[in-house]
Design a protein around this nucleic acid. Sequence first.
DNA 1: CTCGATTGTCTAGCACTGCTAGAATTGTGC
DNA 2: GCACAATTCTAGCAGTGCTAGACAATCGAG
Lengths: 188, 188
Amino acid sequence: MATQQRRERERAQRETLIVNAAREMAEADGWASVTVRKLADRIEYSQPVLYSHFAGRGAIVDAVALQGIAELTEVFRAARAGAAPGGELAALAQAYLDFSVGSPAVFEAIFTLAEGLPFGVDAPEVLKAAFAELFAVFAPLAGDRDPEAFTEVGWAALHGLAALGRDGRLRPDLLEQRLEIFLGLFAA
Amino acid sequence: MATQQRRERERAQRETLIVNAAREMAEADGWASVTVRKLADRIEYSQPVLYSHFAGRGAIVDAVALQGIAELTEVFRAARAGAAPGGELAALAQAYLDFSVGSPAVFEAIFTLAEGLPFGVDAPEVLKAAFAELFAVFAPLAGDRDPEAFTEVGWAALHGLAALGRDGRLRPDLLEQRLEIFLGLFAA
DNA sequence: CTCGATTGTCTAGCACTGCTAGAATTGTGC
DNA sequence: GCACAATTCTAGCAGTGCTAGACAATCGAG
């Protein structure tokens, strides 16, 4: 009876243990070094245990991505809350770029590794929440343009700056000027 | 004497054969299915031959990326050349997006797989040429902003639209509105 | 034309990967 | 205490990137 509940609780606990371990390993040595064997060693269980929680390695990456999206949403919320009136976009942009360099492995999991995450109509709630945060910042600046499409363009620009900047494809010394130009384009 | 030259010619020929095969396989079934064994089978040589041309699998991906960048540059040039006065940016944007959906594997090789390509001061010539094409379109629109930084922001926005759109993270039905907004932001 | 030497290529294998069937162990309810 | 059920582990498969050493083909010298 009650043992059943304890079991499920322990299972859930172990699941987050796996996700956290995967994340830490990826952040430390890159996703390529996150192998099922090392992960199993790290949590001190054998490999099949991992497969009783996740369909495969990819599903673990997806779980890290999902957790990362939730975290990103919170980061957005905090940035928006802590910004001076009119400074929301700047705060959001800074938060996005900070996240991309502060947690590169999670960023990679979300935007280039995750494959099993549904993104269309039936996207997970946490994903819609993240977009809602972006929308809250961009929509007021849309003017007579479609607020949703405007948000997507803003997101794309921000994401491009983060993604290209992250792997050294943009001149580091122009970072501030890029940000200024970005703000000028979208906040005007 | 002359045989030496013939040898080198044949070697170069075989090298492009490898790169083309890798590209075709990636475009057909994704990069994950491009294994050294299958690649060797395809070109009808044994695996070690591949390693006499490239340092490893990653170097082959890089070669495809480099070839793709050269191609992308040509696409940019053609778009700019064929555009009506004032329509250069729209043509460039369309070309970029078309390339990302028309050759997704090459796009992936360039922007998420390539690891050995130097990007900073000593970037390969073909890479600088690609950026020069972008610069030629964006710089005239920079106004009093730094043309280089402005180009980078424009590129980032374009790249974000392509990258996020490519894996279904943007609403397909808003594609045209996004493009219009993008053009309005940068061409104004 | 013949014969070593050099160059090129291949066979076979290593260490590793994700993943899984079946044995062994643990804990549960009677 | 015991049969049963759930859980975990051992051992192994097929496939990966990569490489040492055997083999074959080509070349230059006599």
